[in-house]
């Protein structure tokens, strides 16, 4: 399936793309557009104005995708809180990881194109997932 989002991706869109590929559609192909009118007819848009998979009721797009696709996973829920704070920084969650994730993603977008940001952020988010999974299992910081 094809998925479309705005070019110049930052933390929310990078995390959404990772989420889609890992948990929704392993064969996902991503298209980056500068104008919302350029979204291909066969692509599902996300993190864009006026689409279903966008910011809804104060949630960031990552949280919206979790809800819409019924991804009931406490690890993903926690990553959603981190992405929320990295993207919106409205103090809704206590997420000390968020400022670090935000600057890493912004730095990536300064040094490469969107394809590369996705390629590099994927393994980072895989690592974040594993770290949080172990932390939830152990109930403390994993070694």
């Amino acid at each position: 399936m094809r998925w479309a989002t705005r070019a110049g991706i930052h933390v929310d869109r990078a995390a959404c793309a990772w989420l889609i590929r890992r948990f929704v559609d392993p064969a996902a192909e991503f298209v980056f557009v500068t104008d919302p009118a350029d979204v291909p007819a066969d692509a599902t848009p996300f993190d864009m104005r006026g689409v279903a998979l966008g910011h809804v009721g104060g949630d960031c797009s990552f949280e919206t995708i979790l809800r819409v696709h019924g991804l009931d996973d406490p690890v993903l829920e926690r990553i959603g809180e981190i992405v929320h704070e990295a993207d919106l920084d409205d103090g809704r969650f206590d997420a000390p990881e968020a400022p670090g994730l935000d600057v890493l993603m912004r730095g990536l977008s300064m040094t490469g194109d969107d394809e590369r940001t996705l390629a590099v952020s994927g393994p980072l988010l895989d690592g974040l997932y594993e770290f949080i999974r172990r932390r939830l299992l152990l109930g403390r910081e994993p070694a």
């Binding site: 110049g8 930052h10 104005r49 006026g50 966008g54 910011h55």
Partner: peptide, 16 residues
Amino acid sequence: DARTRESLEWLADDVL
């Protein structure tokens, strides 16, 4: 800039 524009765009959607 890209960030400020995006922030205001999401707020515009909230208003709509």
